[in-house]
Amino acid sequence: MSNPSILEGVLSDLAAESLQLDAWVAGLPATGWATVTTPEGWTVAHQIGHLHWTDLASHSAITEPEEFARGMELAAANPVGFVDEAAEEMALLPPEQLLASWREGRVALDVALRAVPDGEKIPWYGPPMSPASMATARVMETWAHSHDVGEALGLPIPQTSRARHVCHIGVRTRGFAHLVRGEDAPTADVRVELTGPDGDVWAWGPEDAPERVTGSGYDFALLATRRRHVEDVDVHAEGPGAAHWLTIVQAFAGMPGADPVRLADR
């Protein structure tokens, strides 16, 4: 089985993040599911539909790799609209059906991830991933879309250490964030030291790196999921390369989309 100790911890955080969002939407009337959550017009239903579709795709990548490969061909043929069209289709389902299906899909993916043999990689739209990496990516997406839903519904959004998974991906994808914008990947190291909600320090990179990023781990996660403008977070850079990175940091695959708008301009 795949690295049980690391995988178990990530799956536990994924379940907790999902249950939090589940509790927010479970009691919503149909009008609540129609609440717009993003500037692009995604509703609560789109958000849950997108998470459910991605869970299904992840499960297919593990259990039906040939079927998943056909889905990748469709994505390659429509790289901009593929994800949005899937969310749009899911959002048409009645809320109670979508919620029940999302719950079932979460359980099925958890089981499938635990069953992946040691050392085996799972195909994906980007590079193949280990089960722990795929589970971490699911935490990141669930965290980001939960934030969209909570903010749109006016709910208090708890700051938890689960944001560390988001930060980890944001740091690991530093080169990708440049490449996806047609820039050269940076060669200089950056030291990242972030403070989690519980006061612990999350650190990446050499201690003697020439440039640094410091500040709130929760706020860096908001930056990395492009939910906040760099001027609206408690995250600071030392050095021009680090400063530029904070304007383009991106924890998710695909194109970055529109830049976040400053809170003062919303």
Rank of each mutant, 00 (worst) to 15 (best):
P4C: 07
P4I: 11
S12H: 14
A15L: 10
Q20N: 12
D22V: 05
V25Q: 11
V25K: 06
V25P: 02
W33H: 02
A34V: 07
T37I: 07
T38E: 14
P39G: 11
E40N: 15
T54D: 08
T54M: 14
D55F: 02
L56Y: 07
L56G: 11
S58H: 01
H59I: 15
I62H: 01
E67F: 02
R70F: 06
R70P: 03
A91N: 03
A91M: 02
P95S: 11
E96G: 08
L98Y: 03
S101Q: 12
R103Q: 10
R106V: 00
V107S: 13
L109H: 02
R114Y: 14
A115Y: 06
D118F: 12
K121T: 08
P128H: 13
S130R: 05
P131Y: 01
P131H: 05
A137G: 14
A137P: 04
V139F: 01
A144N: 07
H145K: 07
H145F: 05
H147M: 08
A152Y: 04
T160C: 05
R162F: 05
F176Y: 11
V180Q: 11
E183K: 05
D184V: 11
A185I: 04
A188N: 08
V190A: 04
E193G: 08
L194H: 01
W202Q: 13
A203I: 04
W204C: 12
P210Q: 10
T214H: 02
D219L: 00
D219I: 07
F220H: 03
T225C: 11
R226K: 14
V230D: 11
V230P: 04
D234S: 11
D234R: 01
V235F: 00
A237N: 01
G241I: 06
H244I: 13
Q250G: 10
F252R: 04
F252I: 07
G254S: 05
P256E: 00
G257E: 12
D259H: 08
P260T: 05
V261H: 05
D265H: 14
